[in-house]
Amino acid sequence: MSTKDRGHKANRDGTEPGVDEAIRALLLLMPRMVGRAKRIRVPEEIQSLALAPRHLSLLSYLLFDGPMTVKDLAARLEVAPTTVSLMVGELSRKGILERREDESDRRRRIVSITDGKRPSIDSWLARGARAWRQALNPLTPEQRHMFVQTLRAYEAAMADDEDD
C-alpha cells in the first residue's frame, strides 16, 4: 500500500513526514474529530437523561462485551469499583441499567443495559463504532495495537499536563 493510499503525503523528497509535520496534521485533525463526535445525535428517548462522557465508556463496554460485574467494569474503565458502583446506581435509577444476581454466585451482581434502552444506546454508539471499524480494518493487528497505544500515550500526556 502506498503512502498516498494511507491518506498522508510524503515530503517532496519522498520521505515520510517528520514528527513536527505529523503534530501539525493532528492539531488540525483533532478538533474536527471532536466536533464530529459531539454532533452525533443523542436519540430523543435518552436526551433527557443527562449522560456524560464517563457514561459513554461504561455503556460501550456493556453494549459490545455484554453484561458484567462492577469489578470487571472498573478494571476495564481503569477506575475504582466504588466509582463504577455510583455510576451504575445513577444509571439504574434512570432506567438505563439493571443489576441482577449472578446465577453461579448469588453474592455477585451482574450489570446490563435494560432491554428498553438497548436500541437507543446501540443507535447512539453505532455510528462511531462503524467509523472506527472502517478506519482500523485495513490495519494489521500490530498497527492497530500501535494506534491504540499512541492514543493512550497522548491521553496520558494530556493528563500529566493537567496535573502541572
Rank of each mutant, 00 (worst) to 15 (best):
D164N: 13
A131K: 04
S120D: 03
A159L: 13
M87L: 15
E103C: 12
A157K: 12
S120H: 12
G95T: 02
M68W: 03
R36G: 08
R130I: 03
L86D: 15
V42P: 06
G35K: 06
E16V: 14
A157G: 13
R133F: 07
D164M: 13
G7F: 07
V42Q: 08
V19W: 07
L63T: 02
K117G: 04
P67N: 08
G35W: 01
D65F: 11
R144S: 02
S123P: 05
A159V: 10
A52N: 07
A25F: 10
E162A: 12
M33Q: 10
S104C: 09
S2P: 04
G7D: 05
G7H: 06
M30A: 12
V79R: 11
S2F: 07
F147R: 10
D164S: 15
E103D: 15
Y61Q: 07
D13M: 10
A153C: 03
A22K: 09
A37S: 05
V79E: 01
L27K: 09
R100A: 06
R93T: 03
A126R: 15
D161C: 12
P67Q: 14
G18L: 06
T114S: 08
T3W: 15
L26Y: 09
A50K: 15
S92P: 03
R106S: 10
H145K: 14
H145Q: 14
T140A: 02
L91I: 07
D105V: 04
P138L: 07
L97Y: 05
R109C: 04
